[in-house]
């Protein structure tokens, strides 16, 4: 699990005088799903395009499977499959012809493997139809099939669930988990949807205005934020008592918010009851990344 498959160091991009990406570092390990989270315009797509060699970085290095993308482009690309934004394939060709087209750009892809990939993305029934007749979900899957043709170590998917229906989103999620867990791929997924990242990823990098604010395991980030919401009468007394033992902040609807610590919360509750405070509701809240995000970015909006 510790093999590093993608390594980014000090990545910068300047367009004109404007620094769009301000120095990004992260390492991806084998078999993990890594989330790239940020609002639209944070620099996710620019970063991904630099990773896949579409945009030249102004500074910094990118290594895929140990090969530098700038110095050793073909070897680095051979380790990687990607979909950048929408899966744009040749709509006037059939799915199979598209796969053949991209297979011809790789050193050696045998037909058995192509069939295997087609089955993997469950397109075997429609693979000989023209892509223009495909639904968005099917195109997305064909895009992934295309990305898998070269047996990559790293799969980079930009907004893979964009435009999919709930069913399709769940399928995609399961599929990505499967690729990471069973096939041992490193999957880099970008999204502006926090719920997606939360459900799909092992680790996440939160990116805002061109820099990475935080990189951590999803569980850690969430644990950091676990809270207890109190509804108690009289409110002021309760706030005073809790304030004596921990940090209290005001929540919505006159609620009081304190951090959650196992055991501690029960003791605090007893203190309140003993002092004659009526505790109407005590709610442990597993926060969404959403709150964390707002906190980290200082209220920058995310949709």
């Amino acid at each position: 699990m510790s093999e590093i498959t993608l390594s980014v160091k000090g990545l910068k991009k300047t367009i004109g005088k404007k620094e769009i990406i301000k120095g990004i570092d992260f390492d991806l390990k084998r078999g993990e799903v890594f989330g790239f989270l940020g609002p639209n315009g944070a620099g996710k797509t620019t970063t991904i395009r630099m990773l896949v060699g579409l945009i030249k970085p102004s500074a910094g290095t990118i290594e895929i499977g140990g090969y530098n993308v700038r110095k050793n482009f073909t070897k680095a690309m051979a380790q990687m499959g990607c979909i950048v934004e929408n899966p744009e394939l040749y709509s006037y060709l059939t799915g199979w012809e598209n796969l053949e087209h991209f297979a011809r750009m790789l050193p050696e892809v045998d037909r058995d493997y192509m069939n295997y990939v087609v089955e993997l993305v469950r397109l075997d029934e429609r693979i000989h139809d023209r892509v223009s007749t495909y639904s968005l979900g099917m195109r997305q899957r064909l895009g992934i099939a295309q990305a898998l043709l070269g047996k990559p170590k790293v799969l980079i998917l930009d907004e893979p669930t964009n435009g999919l229906d709930p069913m399709g989103i769940r399928e995609m999620r399961n599929f990505i988990r499967y690729l990471a867990e069973e096939e041992g791929l490193t999957v880099l997924v970008s999204s502006h949807l926090l719920s997606e990242i939360q459900l799909m990823c092992d680790r996440v990098a939160i990116i805002s205005k061109g820099s990475v604010i935080k990189v951590d395991y999803v569980e850690n980030l969430l644990a950091l934020q676990e809270k207890v919401i109190w509804h108690a009468e009289p409110r002021d007394t309760a706030k005073e008592i809790l304030g004596g033992v921990t940090t209290v902040s005001d929540g919505a609807d006159g609620a009081l918010v304190t951090p959650y610590f196992e055991n501690e919360s029960a003791i605090w509750n007893r203190m309140l009851v003993e002092k004659g405070v009526q505790v109407n509701e005590m709610n442990r809240k597993l926060p969404a990344l959403e709150d964390l995000f707002l906190e980290l970015t200082g209220g920058e909006t995310i949709d």
Partner: peptide, 14 residues
């Protein structure tokens, strides 16, 4: 304009 250039140029071909 079709965006396929993104796939074309991210293959291991110079």
């Amino acid at each position: 304009s079709a965006g396929t250039v993104k796939l074309l140029l991210t293959r291991p071909v110079k």
